[in-house]
Design a protein around this nucleic acid. Structure first.
Ligand SMILES: [Mn+2]
Ligand SMILES: [Mn+2]
Ligand SMILES: [Zn+2]
Ligand SMILES: [Zn+2]
Lengths: 135, 135
DNA sequence: AAAACAATTTGGAATTGGTCTATACTGCAG
DNA sequence: CTGCAGTATAGACCAATTCCAAATTGTTTT
């Protein structure tokens, strides 16, 4: 995803394309990946740009609300932000903390139980926890 | 699960049955449930017992390492400790933060993808995010 | 029993990811 | 210009969890 795509995406969602939002998007949305807020802040620093922590969090939250990124909670200590928003699943390496995608089509879920009364389903996510083979 | 069961369980796992560990176990392991560390601390307080916060966390971590309880990360801000350790799945109500069990047999997972090289599978968990129907 | 030792518990400080707040900046409409 | 809405910012704040060094408990040695 390149700059013009990002601007189009923002326009489609009525998101004002501020300098800071574009910069965050250019880091996160370039490829399918899973970054924590801090990783994004670090990369911004590295490239000399100084977007504030508060703005990064505001922006990620905004993107999340518009479904432009997906929040992933696999690690107990931090959220990851996923640039792939289509339904899919994940491997989570509990040792390294790495996340890897699993295509939705690679997991077939047969039946699903009835939802609790008064609720509607928002997502179904499969998380396969793995750890390095010891030996 | 009653007191003697807890003591047996501890013995099986070579866990020294200290006063504090037994008290924590008696709160969490009595029934299938999902409690946060703070909920456990609150209940200890209520019943007059004063186990320190540090010990509660130490104990929950110990139980987790022995597979006596399972840590669940569905809520971004806190862990939940699940007294059911057999494989099963969850509904997570994103509005209320409540977790509800889904029997393993209620979800049939067909195929699973190849694991990343050099890793072994630890668990497969399905999390169905739900929210109250608005209207 | 006293001393030594290991395991556990403890209060409180420290850490950490994230949010809040009050102020400042930006771009535009009147 | 001036006013206003929307944003950005630094830094204070917060809540969950971990860390630490000292105190307690229980168990061996002398
Ligand atoms: Mn992904
Ligand atoms: Mn459960
Ligand atoms: Zn949108
Ligand atoms: Zn064990």
């Amino acid at each position: 995803m390149m700059r013009s795509d990002i601007l189009d995406l923002f326009e489609k969602h009525d998101i004002l394309p501020t300098q800071q939002r574009v910069e965050v998007a250019q880091i996160l949305l370039v490829r399918p990946q899973h970054l924590s807020a801090e990783q994004i802040i670090d990369r911004l620093m590295q490239q000399g740009s100084s977007v504030s922590k508060a703005t990064v969090y505001n922006t990620l939250k905004l993107f999340g609300e518009h479904g432009i990124v997906k929040e992933i909670m696999a690690d107990p200590v931090r959220k990851f932000y996923d640039s792939s928003t289509l339904p899919h699943h994940h491997f989570y390496n509990v040792d390294t903390g790495e996340l890897h995608d699993i295509a939705e089509s690679d997991v077939s879920i047969g039946s699903l139980p009835l939802l609790p009364a008064g609720t509607r389903q928002e997502s179904v996510e499969v998380l396969i926890r793995v750890r390095p083979t010891e030996n």
